[in-house]
């Protein structure tokens, strides 16, 4: 009984999705994505000596994540059983908080932390299900290098500086490199309105418009070489992706 129900469900699904692929589809070589997702730098607090009780990120910026914007362009280097592409992506992240007085209370002086992530990834998209059986879901995975440029501004909107006891000064401008792994799922909006999707392809060469969500592990610690801080995080991004 159970197996026959499952068979019926599978048959209905197949009937819904299984329309032959459009033979006149334009060639597809690129994807462009725009996405947003929460990001936090609270890992910085974890690297510090917990006995002091100071958590700079939490104390100044709070514990909640802030929104990151990201956009990327991918070029398909191989298309067969799915596709393999090389993707370059960048974005912007910003958080602002209030500077701390000597007694630990927050002042009205603002301080900001800014980051521009630069990512180079290898991407595999398992589009076989979509191409063969018109299932509108495309799982994907990414792996790549990260280079995140960051800077901190003080209350005068100048680059923050710190002078050590030994007189050496450091500017709050630098970059941290690392790796990332991402995994996600894309939903093809053409499935909702195939006619519109075909028109978009014929008029603008966009083969598919997708909504996507991806989970990302960023390991950003200069590969633990030197005295880098830890910007690592596990987060997600969601947005829209165009395939053309």
């Amino acid at each position: 009984m159970k197996s026959s129900l499952l068979a019926c469900f599978a048959a209905i699904l197949f009937a819904c999705f299984a329309t032959p692929a459009n033979a006149e589809e334009s060639p597809k070589n690129f994807t462009l994505h725009l996405g947003f997702g929460p990001h936090s730098i609270n890992a910085i607090d974890d690297e510090l000596d917990s006995s002091t009780g100071t958590k700079p990120v939490s104390d100044v910026f709070g514990t909640g994540p802030k929104l990151m914007f990201q956009m990327g362009l991918e070029y398909y280097v191989w298309q067969g059983f799915g596709s393999v592409g090389i993707e370059g992506a960048s974005g912007f992240w910003h958080t602002s908080g209030k500077g701390l007085r000597e007694d630990g209370t927050q002042s009205k002086d603002s301080t900001t932390f800014n980051m521009i992530p630069l990512k180079l990834s290898a991407v595999y998209r398992f589009s076989y299900l979509q191409e063969e059986w018109a299932v509108p879901l495309v799982p994907f995975a990414k792996f790549g290098f990260d280079y995140w440029i960051w800077w901190v501004l003080n209350q005068r909107d100048d680059l923050a500086r710190f002078v050590d006891d030994d007189g050496s000064s450091s500017k709050a401008l630098g970059a941290t490199y690392g790796l990332h792994v991402a995994y996600g799922l894309m939903f093809n909006l053409n499935f909702i309105d195939r006619e519109l999707g075909r028109d978009f392809d014929q008029s603008a060469g966009v083969n598919g418009t997708y909504l996507y969500i991806e989970g990302v592990y960023n390991w950003l610690e200069d590969f633990k070489i030197g005295d880098s801080w830890n910007l690592s995080t596990h987060t997600f991004l969601a947005g829209i992706l165009f395939e053309f």
Binding site: P56, E102, L153, N154, A160, F162
Partner: peptide, 22 residues
């Protein structure tokens, strides 16, 4: 007016070792 530590100063005063640079 009193001294206020921005985020970078707070981080360094807490023992942070990042030095910045490229």
């Amino acid at each position: 007016p009193r001294p206020v530590s921005d985020f970078w100063e707070t981080y360094k005063e807490a023992g942070g070792k990042e030095k910045g640079g490229f």
